[in-house]
Design a protein around this nucleic acid. Structure first.
Lengths: 143, 143
DNA sequence: CAATATGTAATTGTCGTTGTTACGATTACA
DNA sequence: TGTAATCGTAACAACGACAATTACATATTG
């Protein structure tokens, strides 16, 4: 599996919505405007916003004057939820199968897998301490 | 950038060396044997062991009876060092450049970048609590 | 000298992602 | 009711990264 830019794009989009005060259908932001702020392609943005909508973080509406808006206050959207929304993980790799025959050697892959999962969870836990609102603060208090 | 299997391969190789008691040149394990335990290609293993050697975790020797052996006790090799040795990271993505013009929007990418770095560091810190020796323990006390 | 083994370059095939176009469905507004 | 705007998604090509493989110079043992 290859690297994906979905998480940074999602985080940027949510921060942009928060910055623009898009918290209701009347203030929806179009994928074209979000894409211009990256900058990237509107379709790329819609692919991500569709996932964020499925995760319940935003709502979207088609049609003239449509677009996306936040369903929650920016201070209540932890980045771990954003990562999960786009099916992200740390991508540290997948353990090799492990050769059959050696009783000890066969267990190495699952131990490596457990270590990767632990790292994955640690990253998610750290991201949970950062919210979309934090992405807009001018001071670098979040590190 | 695509996913890399370097970290799992490195972790597996180190655990295999520890399991085989390869702690001195006389007990060197060849890349062919390591590759067979994955299983993968010997060249893939050598690419990784070369990085581990540069990081000072193992030593290697060419020639008949050559191969790789550990330079440190397995209990002193934290997996964060292994990850750094293979130049690994969480691969959460790279923030988009951010469109020029909006003074607030321009700062979003660096905020996202800081969040990704924080997640990266959290993952490394978690991996530092797991050693190569832990990968061989039969009980799943590491999670 | 022959056999074994590393380190690295070059090549190929595969796979995932991005960017793009296209299209049907939905919505606002005149 | 008609027109324009907008989403969601499919289809496609271009691109890049990686694994696997072959090849070879170098190093070491016996």
């Amino acid at each position: 599996m290859s690297d994906s830019q979905k998480f940074p794009v999602a985080a940027h989009a949510l921060a942009y919505l928060a910055h623009k005060g898009a918290t209701a259908p009347e203030h929806a932001i179009s994928s074209a405007e979000l894409a211009a702020s990256m900058p990237t392609n509107p379709v790329v943005v819609r692919r991500v916003t569709a996932m964020l909508a499925r995760a319940g973080l935003i709502d979207t509406r088609a049609g003239a004057g449509g677009g996306a808006w936040l369903k929650l206050p920016p201070s209540e959207i932890g980045l771990d939820r954003v990562l999960r929304a786009v099916h992200g993980c740390t991508h540290l790799g997948v353990p090799p199968p492990g050769a059959a025959g050696c009783p000890v050697g066969e267990r190495i892959p699952e131990a490596v897998s457990a270590a990767i999962s632990a790292a994955d969870q640690a990253a998610a836990t750290r991201l949970s301490t950062i919210t979309v609102a934090d992405l807009l603060s001018t001071d670098p208090e979040k590190l």
